[in-house]
């Protein structure tokens, strides 16, 4: 059972079950806990190789036991996500913890990943359960529906969930090269049904400079 204690600490109450969490993110626990490093995020040999090849690496640990365990990472804001059989796409650097019942994997993001400086691949989480994702400042959750498509700055994007199509928009014109660009040269447009998580901060990316 995930719950937030304040906005920057995640408390997980466990009764013999397990969670997967970012390596080294445990700050405290009471009760009996066992920590085990999960090589390759518990995705097996194939997942391990995929992660190594795609550069979407994450080191996870499995925490199992009785009691409460607290997680935090560099005072980042933590956001809880409930998954009911749908798929969450999140950058591996923004993932803090998931229920151990959730499957993780990698997926190709194409140009979006390249524009936000995070590589061409992203992490997917699937199944039923809870996940905790991190953001720089509290994330704003925005709904996307058929009549309300959403456009997002690649540097502020952290995760999305649901049945969404993403397309990459480029506003690069000759003015960009003359230093008179609109400052928002790269954008990701989401269409379909789902929600998008954005953070009130932009990571450094090539998109921030043009």
């Amino acid at each position: 059972m995930f719950r937030l204690q304040g906005s920057k600490v995640l408390a997980v109450d466990m009764t013999g079950d397990a969670v997967k969490a970012k390596n080294g993110s445990m700050v405290a626990y009471d009760g009996q806990m066992a920590f085990k490093k999960l090589s390759g995020g518990g995705e097996g040999i194939r997942g391990m190789v995929t992660r190594r090849v795609t550069g979407e690496q994450m080191t996870l640990m499995e925490v199992k036991g009785q009691g409460t365990c607290w997680f935090a990472d560099r005072a980042s804001e933590i956001n809880l996500v409930n998954l009911q059989g749908d798929k969450l796409f999140v950058e591996s650097s923004n993932l803090l913890a998931t229920d151990s019942g959730l499957r993780t994997g990698t997926s190709f993001t194409g140009l979006r990943g390249a524009s936000q400086g995070n590589g061409l691949f992203t992490t997917t989480i699937e199944g039923h359960g809870q996940a905790a994702i991190m953001s720089d400042g509290p994330a704003v959750v925005l709904r996307v529906s058929s009549q309300y498509p959403l456009t997002v700055d690649p540097g502020a994007y952290i995760a999305h969930q649901g049945n969404l199509r993403q397309s990459f928009q480029s506003g690069v014109t000759f003015r960009t090269f003359m230093g008179e660009g609109g400052g928002e040269a790269f954008q990701i447009r989401f269409e379909g049904d789902g929600v998008v998580y954005v953070q009130p901060s932009e990571r450094n990316s090539i998109a921030g400079d043009v």
Binding site: V140, L150, T151, V152, D153, A156, G183, Q199, E202
Partner: peptide, 13 residues
């Protein structure tokens, strides 16, 4: 420049 994080609707910068 670069302070927009997301928008609905149609906009031009």
């Amino acid at each position: 420049k670069g302070k927009m994080i997301a928008y609905y609707g149609s906009m031009e910068f």
